[in-house]
Amino acid sequence: MPLPASATLLARITPLVEKLKRYAWLWPPTAFVIGLLGFFLVNRQQWLGAVLALGLLFAWCLLLAESLLTRLLNFRGQPGLPRMVTTFIAQLIHQETLFFTLPFFLATTVWASGQAIFTLLLIGCGLLAILDPLYFGLAQRHRWLYFMFHALCVFVVVLVTLPIMLHLTTGQSLILAIVAMAIFSVPSLINLMQPQGLWRWLAMIGLIVVLASAAWIGRVWIPPATLWLSGNALSPSFDVGAREPRGESVLTPSTLSGQGLYAYTAIRAPRGLREKIYHVWRHNGEVVDRIPLVIRGGREQGYRAWTHKQNFPSASQGNWQIDVMTATDQRIGTLRFRVDEDASKATHADGDIHSPPGLPGWNIRHLVAGSDQDDE
């Protein structure tokens, strides 16, 4: 009697998975290298970066197809793929996702903010994904945590790939990432909660809403994966033609009331992207100005944008901060300065363009061949 088609499929897949497991250790570093290539190719050979991102999305489609196939076979009374096989396939996709997207978040995180927590969480998840005892233990004994892990992977893959492939803004990508996370979480939640009655279905829908709401509320801690600050400066004057800061001064109240202050930022973004950002001026933690700017991606040194604040309050002494924010309140970078009557305590605005601390753009973009873009 011939075996059912599903049994034949299982007989072929299971030995193949056992062979692949011997080389599974190669997958994380390979995905990390591919992620690095995708990151550096965002502005140079962007079509190739988009191809790499498309490959990652295709892998997720395969994972979703595998999940649906297993449920279809079970519905027809036929054996589905063994749990070991499905978990191993999911592990490979999770590894690829985390190590592909990690270079983007390492380069765009403002480490002196809550964004560091999100990126460190991704690093921890990446380590979890390559340690088989922990990963399989999570998948088998703590299904709700495994569900959260899966949802996070869906979230970050959409957050990184859409600006590269479709030139969507950071805010649009964030919203679609939340929607995708909710959609891709449905099969996992069905498997986790086994909803049969009305109340279980309502509870599952409520959990999806809570998950999406948590992602939206916590967006301020999520780095804008394809935007980063490549340079910044404070200056008393500005050469609009050359788009460069000029002059120098000590930031005392009298100086600011007389000539104001220019805040210059150079922001890297994927070629073809057009996005509104904001310079949010804060005095002792309180927002005093929120000035919109529109940037365009593609320039090697970053799109040069600036704001000129003139209406400083009479009591302007204290600590000032300029947050460079997206329209959805994700921080791209920060400039800080102090205003004081005592010139020795006040910040010296020298007009020099400084690179921010941390890993902005990895600072090794010269390794990628191609000519610089000086459009803006």
Rank of each mutant, 00 (worst) to 15 (best):
G302C: 03
A315N: 14
A212M: 15
I190P: 04
A214N: 02
L20M: 15
I295T: 12
V33M: 09
N191D: 14
G49A: 07
A343N: 02
S314M: 11
T226Q: 13
K345P: 03
P29G: 07
P253R: 07
V368L: 10
L41T: 04
L168N: 03
R274Q: 15
Q321G: 03
L251T: 08
G370C: 03
P253A: 06
E96M: 15
G124K: 14
F88G: 08
L168G: 06
L41Q: 14
I295Y: 05
W25R: 10
I130F: 05
V17P: 04
I353G: 02
F105M: 09
L174S: 06
A177R: 00
A305M: 01
G302L: 09
G126E: 06
T347N: 02
E244S: 09
I322Y: 03
L56Q: 13
A327Y: 10
S230G: 13
W281C: 03
M1R: 12
H167F: 13
V85D: 07
H366T: 07
F155Y: 13
V158P: 01
A343D: 03
T108D: 09
D352W: 08
V17F: 04
L81Y: 14
G197I: 07
D329I: 09
A129N: 10
A180G: 14
L168K: 10
D342W: 12
G171N: 04
T226L: 04
A233C: 03
L273F: 01
E300Y: 09
S67R: 15
P356A: 03
E286W: 00
L20I: 08
C125P: 00
L261Y: 02
S67I: 12
T334V: 15
S185P: 03
L54C: 09
A269I: 06
L134H: 04
L189F: 12
G358H: 07
P15Q: 02
S6R: 11
N43L: 06
L134Y: 07
N363Y: 00
T265M: 11
I93R: 00
A242Q: 14
V280D: 08
V280T: 13
L166Y: 13
G55D: 10
A349P: 04
Y262I: 12
L176R: 04
R22H: 12
V186D: 02
R282E: 10
L98N: 03
L176C: 02
Q196S: 05
D340A: 14
E300F: 07
P29I: 09
K345E: 12
L159T: 08
A180C: 09
R219W: 05
